[in-house]
C-alpha cells in the first residue's frame, strides 16, 4: 500500500513539474505564424510535387501569403478549385486558367519506328542519351526507359511495353511538370487539356529532313508544311522541319489532322465522325 502511494506521488510530481517546464518552454519558443498559411496548406492537395516551383506545399503557402497578388503563383495540381480557395482565404482574386495535361510528342511505336540498334545499359533515358541517340534511326523520339514514369509522383505515366512509348493517364496527370523536367529528350510538354479532353498536337519532335525522318519513323513529321497552310487560325508554325501547334491559338477544327500525310498530328477524344458527314 505504502509503495503504491509513494510511487503515485513521485510520478505525479515528476509529471506536474515536466508539464510546467513544457508549458513555459512552449510559451518562450512560440513562433508567430500567419494562420492563413495553415489554411492555405489545407486547401492545397498536399502532394509536395514541386510543380509550383516551390519546395513543397508549405513553402508555396507562405509565398502566397506574402505575395500581394497571386499572379504567377499557381498550384497546377489543385487547379482552379485550389486557387479559388486560396484567393478566398487571402481576399484577392485569381484568374481562371485552363487545366493542362502532359503530352508526349512522339508516336514512334515499335511498329512504325524500326530498330537499328539494341541498348544494353542501365535502364535510364538520361544515361542512354549520353551513350547514343536511341535504338532507332530517330534521335529525337521517346527512348522508353521511363525516366518520366520514375519522376511522376502521381503514377500517371507508364511505359507501354507494346509500343515502347511513355503513356500519360490524363485522369491522374496533374500537370505538375516533373516529367517535362525529367525527359532528357525534351519531348514531354504541358498543353491545355481542352474541353472534354479534346486536343490536337503534333506527336513528333523529329527535326531531321523529311526523307531521313520518314525513313526512321513512318509516323514522323516530315516538315511538309501542309498543315501550316491549312490552319485558318495561324496556330501552326514550321521550324527545323518540324510543325508545332500553338495551343493558345488552336481552335480544334481538325483541318490539319486531315491533311497530314504521315498522321503525326494527333486528335484526341473527338467523337468518331461518320463517313458521309465527312464528304
Amino acid at each position: 500500500m505504502n509503495i503504491i502511494v509513494v510511487s503515485l506521488i513521485v510520478l505525479g510530481t515528476i509529471g506536474i513539474i515536466a508539464a510546467v517546464i513544457l508549458f513555459f518552454v512552449a510559451k518562450k519558443f512560440y513562433v508567430e505564424e500567419d494562420p492563413r498559411i495553415a489554411e492555405i496548406e489545407n486547401a492545397l492537395p498536399g502532394a509536395n510535387c514541386g510543380g509550383c516551383g516551390f519546395a513543397g506545399c508549405k513553402n508555396f503557402a507562405s509565398a502566397c501569403v506574402s505575395a500581394t497578388e497571386l499572379g504567377d503563383l499557381r498550384c497546377p495540381v489543385g487547379g482552379n478549385n485550389a486557387m479559388n480557395a486560396i484567393a478566398e482565404i487571402l481576399g484577392v482574386t485569381v484568374a481562371e486558367t485552363k487545366p493542362k495535361v502532359a503530352v508526349l510528342r512522339c508516336a514512334g511505336t515499335c511498329a512504325v519506328r524500326p530498330r537499328t540498334s539494341h541498348y544494353n545499359g542501365v535502364s535510364s533515358c538520361a544515361i542512354a542519351t549520353a551513350t547514343f541517340a536511341g535504338e532507332t534511326g530517330c534521335s529525337f523520339g521517346c527512348l522508353g526507359y521511363g525516366d518520366c514514369a520514375k519522376a511522376c509522383t502521381f503514377g500517371a505515366i507508364t511505359v507501354n511495353p507494346e509500343t515502347g512509348l511513355a503513356e500519360v493517364d490524363e485522369d491522374k496527370c496533374t500537370a505538375c511538370g516533373a516529367c517535362v523536367k525529367a525527359c532528357p529528350k525534351g519531348i514531354l510538354e504541358l498543353r491545355f487539356k481542352g474541353s472534354k479532353s479534346r486536343r490536337i498536337y503534333v506527336s513528333c519532335a523529329n527535326k531531321d529532313k523529311g526523307a531521313k525522318a520518314r525513313k526512321a519513323c513512318s509516323a514522323a513529321c516530315i516538315g511538309c508544311g501542309k498543315c501550316v497552310k491549312e490552319c485558318p487560325f495561324g496556330a501552326i508554325t514550321l521550324e527545323n522541319n518540324l510543325a508545332y501547334i500553338d495551343y493558345n491559338l488552336c481552335r480544334l477544327c481538325k483541318k490539319c489532322v486531315a491533311v497530314c500525310p504521315t498522321g503525326s498530328i494527333q486528335a484526341l477524344n473527338f467523337p468518331v465522325i461518320k463517313k458521309d458527314e465527312n464528304i
Partner: peptide, 9 residues
C-alpha cells in the same frame, strides 16, 4: 545498319 548492341564503356 543492322542491329548492333550499344552500351556505355
Amino acid at each position: 545498319m543492322s542491329n548492333y548492341t550499344v552500351a556505355p564503356a
